[in-house]
Amino acid sequence: MDSGTPTRRRLLMLAAGGSISLTAGCINTPTSGQVVSEEPANYCLDQLDESVPEAEATALSIDGVERQPAEELLPKDEAGYACGPQDGMLCGNCTFYIDDKNGNAIGACAVVAGEVRSVDWCGLWAPRDGFGGANSE
């Protein structure tokens, strides 16, 4: 009968150790699909100019929306501009996005002032015409 005790004891110790390891592995780790970034939340704003090239300033958005006059464009902070997408919404799939025209991979927006990256997002995001999106039914 004594021969079963070490096995049972060892099994209990392994089970307890495994539980602790699994719990420790869940602490401070990203959930599935979540990307851990070392960058501050608005790191990209330093990369963006407040003015846009003339080719983008006078261009239509990807859905044909005319860019607002400069004095009517919202500053990024008022628009809730954030570096990176949110729930599949990003400038590149927004009706207001004006594609890059000068080859620097940074575009503009019909309603937000300054340069805009296609991979970012703001609170004015609206789905492209005919494409649906996170806010469409």
Rank of each mutant, 00 (worst) to 15 (best):
Y81F: 10
A59W: 04
C83F: 07
G80D: 06
Q68H: 05
I27E: 05
L73W: 11
Y97V: 05
V35T: 14
M89V: 02
R67C: 06
G80H: 06
C26F: 15
E54P: 15
A24D: 07
L60R: 11
S37V: 05
S32E: 14
R67N: 06
D87G: 14
S37C: 03
D99C: 01
C26S: 14
G64F: 07
E71C: 01
Y81D: 00
M89F: 00
E71I: 04
T58D: 05
P75G: 03
D100Y: 10
P69A: 07
P69R: 02
K76W: 05
T29H: 10
Y43C: 03
S37W: 04
E72G: 00
Q68A: 13
G64M: 08
D63Y: 07
N28M: 08
Y81K: 12
A82L: 12
L45Y: 01
G88D: 02
L45Q: 11
T29F: 09
T23P: 00
D87C: 03
L45W: 13
E66H: 04
Y43D: 06
E56R: 04
T29K: 13
A57G: 11
P69S: 08
D46I: 13
K76M: 08
P69G: 02
L45F: 07
N28A: 12
N93K: 08
N93W: 10
I98W: 03
V65G: 02
T23W: 15
A55E: 14
E39M: 15
F96W: 14
K76G: 06
S32N: 11
A82H: 10
P30N: 08
E39Y: 12
R67L: 07
N42K: 11
G25R: 10
S61R: 01
Q68R: 13
S61A: 08
A41G: 02
E54I: 14
P85L: 04
P75E: 09
P85F: 02
A57P: 06
E39W: 09
N102T: 14
G25S: 09
I27R: 09
C44E: 00
E50G: 14
T58R: 11
Y81R: 10
C26A: 14
D49M: 12
G92Q: 04
C26W: 15
D87T: 01
G92K: 05
S32W: 09
V35M: 11
K76C: 06
V35L: 14
A24T: 13
E50K: 09
D100P: 07
T58I: 02
E78C: 01
T23Y: 15
P85A: 15
A24C: 11
D77R: 11
D87N: 15
I62N: 12
A79G: 09
G84S: 12
F96H: 15
D46P: 00
D49V: 00
D100F: 13
E50Q: 12
G92C: 07
I98C: 03
Q47S: 12
Q68I: 03
P69M: 04
G33N: 02
P30M: 05
G88S: 11
Q47Y: 11
G84Q: 05
